[in-house]
Design a protein around this nucleic acid. Structure first.
Length: 802
RNA sequence: GCGGGUGUGGUGAAAUUGGCAGACACGCAAGAUUUAGGUUCUUGUGCCGUAAGGUGUGCAGGUUCAAGUCCUGUCACCCGCACCA
């Protein structure tokens, strides 16, 4: 009788073994084939590990463990994305230094991750808040500054009234702060910006070189938002050039008015010539007061004010049209001015209806009495002078030619992507390594002065005027200009949390390097990341930002690949039992510690992989986890039924080869749930037989090992098989996956009449004859004529009768 | 509004190229072992029907010998974006 499956003792034993033997320490043998598996490093929050964390970690752990047995040199690292607001807020509230809070949280997280038996190489652990790490975050920023990609700009930013911090557009959700839910308003501040827009086209083009899920590529594409159109130069009756951007230059003859953004600089210039300046000012103020969210809320009814005293002249036909300001036109996109073609644009149509403006049809096919005809790719031009009779596509080409020839405009590509607001008025982030000198302007710190470490301050509270807590620290601020040696002031803003995570995958390649981001040798060997799995919520920003940084580092010769990640997949969230997102307020939070205590880490791992399609969200089910525990118990108990045998028994040969194939392939395609199901089915067959031989048990334990590493190691050792982790991954033979006979279905007119067992790959004639001999088939065919006979080899027979 | 996704038993879910719908698991029912069981083992389990049989993948059509899968229309829910000219 085997010992009881004491998972607590077994898991503790093997975790210590792995620790002591540095089992998962990455080899330095750069001649071996490599595999770099990456999971998103967590933010070490005070709550500890969430039940959702193990899902992606276990998934990539399974892939990594399999790859090791397959002979690869596997890099599977872990670290901490530890700068950020919750830690800072906790520090403020409890008057503890954020570094101490971070240290405590990291320790807790690490203990929890170890408890799960994840095969991370802990010798390569990194932490974004470690000065040895953020030295290089600052270094990369400096290189960008040198190349003109980091610049300072006065701009209206999203201001969280509660966190008192500037947020990126991406961090504003529904007009509220993504983190705290506080109100977000617009505020003009001088900010550090990163010129990601300069990389827009390459970020788009190089998507063709990587293996991301289609939906991930699509989000990247949509976020970059490339559109092709034309800039058209109108002139005002006051003599200014008034350039608009349009994707529909073909509809130029249908422009019946122009709209410019309320912030448009020409308004200031025209001020003394405008007859209704009071109305205009009032509208501008109203628009400025609104946050972006409010502006969006208002979008049912178009509002605006006509600029009285000035009109725009359409270059193509000399027609004078009125100019309006309206907040539906954004200063930040295109030229901040549009030509309005109400007949063929929904927004212009709505606006024209409100202000009773003319609507001229220039593409035939719609009913412009009812609505704007926008979906008119196949339409024919009308009321458009020399464009009449052309298709929309032809007209686009012809009008662009006309504009270029006549010096009235040109083709133009625009992107929705904006430059990245990189400043945060916070303490717990990387200091920006820049000083301001009255004489020299903004000057980067010499690299020898990096890292610029965070000074200790009394209070981490942001100041009321929205400046960083660092701004209260004279000893930090006052310095000398590295350029002229005169007095200068340090930048007091810090970097956003995205900074540290934009290059962390490079640091893992060579985490202790003092002289570089990582050695060239290590980078050339390990990069690119072979497989990166993370949450869908990071597929827009983190992915885009880190691709951008990586491309920049490629440009300055730090890395040798254009793209950082060869493959990117995403996992679904684990929801509460009620199908809702887990949260304290809903009271549906599951604590991984308790699950491990009750069922063991192996069961938790197995269950999180078995719960459903890896890419989809899945509700937690406390009763289903029992099935996984039961399965592990059954595999464990097989120790009592082991008989001798160096090869699979004949009756089980196809089952084992098929299962090896299924598990091997399913792991690669993230179908962990069906891989587990296949192993369960195999174990059920073995139970039905009552016995398992040594060769079979050995294979079963290795197959299950990536999923349940502790139990399988222990059973392996107890069986005298050695150390499982040192064995090769089992092989299968395609030819041996096939059974001798197969059951096929016999249908008449598509209805199942019977099933019969035939030899694999029997010939058609024989099978048809056999099928016709079946009494049920005979009865159904009797008195009718067979018009057609269909035979799908090894699957089914279908007689079509009349 | 735009983009993406999902809809299959009492529950979580499976289902290469169209080819036995419901694998695997939970739950439930019956039985066996056990002093006991939130243990273990065996059997059964989509729905209607005693059965033969019928019926069944959100809904309505279509293509096909054959549709969860392909096509057309439609409904519901979830996620992302939100006036990007």
């Amino acid at each position: 009788m085997s010992r009881k499956y004491d998972f607590t003792a077994i898991e503790k034993k093997w975790q210590s073994y792995w620790d002591e033997h540095h089992t998962f320490k990455v080899g330095e043998d750069y001649s071996k084939p490599k595999f770099y598996a990456l999971v998103e490093f967590p933010y070490p929050s005070g709550q500890g590990l969430h039940i959702g964390h193990p899902r992606p970690y276990t998934a990539m752990d399974i892939v990594s463990r399999k790859r090791r047995l397959e002979g690869y040199n596997v890099l599977f690292p872990m670290g901490w994305d530890a700068f950020g607001l919750p830690t800072e807020n906790y520090a403020i509230k409890n008057k503890i230094h954020p570094a101490l809070v971070t240290e405590k949280n990291v320790q807790h997280f690490k203990d929890q991750l170890k408890m799960l038996g994840l095969s991370f190489d802990w010798d390569r652990e990194i932490n974004t808040t470690d000065p040895d790490y953020y030295k290089w975050t600052q270094w990369i920023f400096l290189q960008m500054f040198k190349k003109g990609l980091a610049y300072k700009k006065e701009m209206a930013v999203n201001w969280c009234t509660s966190c008192k911090v500037v947020l990126a557009n991406e961090e504003v959700v529904g007009g509220c702060c993504e983190r705290c839910g506080g109100e977000v308003v617009r505020k003009v501040k001088s900010q550090w910006m990163l010129k990601i827009t300069e990389y827009a086209q390459r970020l788009l083009d190089d998507l063709s070189e990587v293996n991301y899920l289609d939906k991930i590529k699509l989000t990247q594409k949509n976020w970059i938002g490339r559109s092709t159109g034309a800039e058209v130069d109108f002139t005002s009756t006051l003599g200014d050039k008034l350039t608009v951007y349009t994707t529909r230059p073909d509809t130029l003859f249908g422009a019946t008015y122009m709209v410019i953004a309320p912030e448009h600089p020409l308004i200031e210039k025209w001020a003394d010539k405008l007859e209704n300046m009071d109305d205009i000012k009032a509208y501008q103020e109203m628009a400025a007061r609104k946050s972006d969210f409010d502006r969006t809320e208002m979008n049912k009814d178009k509002t605006g004010v006509e600029l009285k005293g000035v009109r725009a002249i359409n270059p193509v036909n000399g027609r004078e049209i009125p100019i309006f300001i309206s907040d539906y036109v954004l200063m930040t996109y295109g030229t901040g001015a549009i030509m309005a073609v109400p007949a063929h644009d929904t927004r212009d149509y709505e606006f024209a209806k409100v202000f009773n403006l003319p609507i001229i049809e220039v593409v035939k096919g719609g009913d412009i009495e009812k609505e704007a005809f926008t979906d008119c790719a196949t339409g024919i031009m009308t009321n458009s002078g020399f464009l009449d009779g052309l298709s929309v596509e032809e007209a686009k080409v012809k009008i662009k030619e006309w504009l270029t020839e006549n010096g009235k405009g040109h083709e133009k590509v625009n992107y929705k992507l904006r430059d990245w607001v990189f400043s945060r008025q916070r303490y717990w982030g990387e200091p920006i390594p820049i000083v301001y000198c009255e004489k020299c302007g903004y000057v980067g710190l010499p690299e020898s002065e990096l890292p610029l470490t965070l000074p200790d301050v009394e209070s981490y509270m942001p100041t009321d005027n929205g400046e960083s807590p660092l701004s209260t620290l004279d000893s930090f601020i006052n310095t000398t200009c590295p350029h002229c040696g005169g007095p200068a002031k340090r930048e007091t803003d810090t970097m956003p949390q995205w900074a540290g995570s934009s290059w962390y995958f490079l640091r893992y390649c060579d985490p202790h390097n003092k002289d570089a981001v990582a050695s060239k040798e290590a980078l050339d060997y390990w990069m690119p990341v072979d497989w990166y799995n993370g949450g869908m919520e990071h597929t827009t920003l983190h992915l885009l930002y880190s691709r951008f940084w990586h491309k920049f580092l490629y440009d300055i010769g730090v890395v040798s690949q254009k793209e950082p990640y060869m493959k990117r997949t995403s996992h679904g969230m684990i929801l509460g039992e009620d199908g809702q997102k887990m949260s304290k307020s809903r009271g549906n939070v599951i604590n991984p510690d308790e699950v491990v205590k009750e069922y063991g880490a192996d069961t938790l791992r197995l269950y999180e992989m078995f719960i459903g399609d890896f890419e989809k969200t899945a509700p937690w089910s406390p009763s289903s986890i029992k099935g996984c525990k039961r399965f592990l118990d059954r595999v464990w108990s097989l120790q009592d039924s082991v008989i001798d045998g160096d090869e699979y028994r004949e009756a089980f040969t196809p089952s084992f080869h098929k299962t090896i194939k299924k598990v091997s392939e399913d792991i690669e395609s993230l179908k962990f749930n069906t891989a587990i199901a296949a192993m369960m089915a195999l174990v059920n067959d073995i139970y039905a037989d009552g016995k398992i031989n040594k060769a079979e048990y050995r294979t079963l334990l290795i197959l299950l090992n990536p999923f349940a590493p502790h139990m399988t190691e222990e059973a392996f050792e107890l069986m005298g098989f050695g150390i499982l982790n040192e064995q090769p991954w089992p092989k299968y033979d395609e030819a041996l996956c096939v059974e001798d006979s197969v059951e096929i279905v016999v249908q008449v007119n598509g209805r199942i009449k019977t099933k019969m067992s035939i030899a694999v790959d029997s010939d058609k004639e024989k099978v048809l004859e056999m099928a016709l001999g079946d009494p049920k088939v005979k009865e159904a065919v009797d008195g009718k004529s067979v018009v057609k006979q269909i035979y799908v080899p090894n699957k089914l027979v279908n007689f079509v009768v009349k």
